[in-house]
Amino acid sequence: MNQNPVIVDRGQASVLATNKVLRNTYMLLSMTLLFSGLTAGLSMAMQLPFAMYFGSVIGAFALIWLVLPRVAKSGAGIAVVFAITGLLGVGLGPLLNYYTALANGSQIIGLALGGTGVIFVGLSAYVLTTKKDFSFMGGFLFAGFLVILVAAIANIFFQIPALSLTISSAIILIMSGFILYDTSRIINGGETNYILATIGIYLALYNIFVSLLQILGIFGGDD
């Protein structure tokens, strides 16, 4: 006979809530990825200039920092998430056009896309099956990201190929860590807002994809 029905009920309610956040996050993530693919395709077809990548990233981060925190708990948050991911998709268009112009550009894009998918599915499956708590990685990941930002600022002006490669590699590792961290926060109840969870994982995937494109581009003959 169950001695603590209330405790068990609360436990079950917590698990159900966590599953709901996870399910909603993955559903919204899949829709935003499809939407990004659509806007990236349109951007490619329209042959938008490379400056568009820069402009769309600025627009997306303005929405992430200034608008999303105010609407994340309302239905309007979903519209803002689509605006952010749509903008980032538009920004990918010129980048993808650049790679498709290379001799093995289609192969590079395909590998980067498939590679991003495999990394995401693998890391998510690892967290979901082990149910490990990766909250201890938070400080390390944010500090690591700041170091990458400083290196990236320096490399804008120095343009050292080896540093570019190092930065892209470091981004993949840090963003992989963020996938572990974000997913573990969802399943352990640290993140209860699926809109914020979606944006966190989406940005990690976006950065992994762009960095993989750069690395494969460098090794595939693009310098």
Binding site: G115, V118, L123, G177, I215
Partner: peptide, 10 residues
């Protein structure tokens, strides 16, 4: 462990 797997995969 999973990060090393990511490195090997890349």
């Amino acid at each position: 462990f999973p990060i090393v797997l990511v490195i090997l995969f890349v």
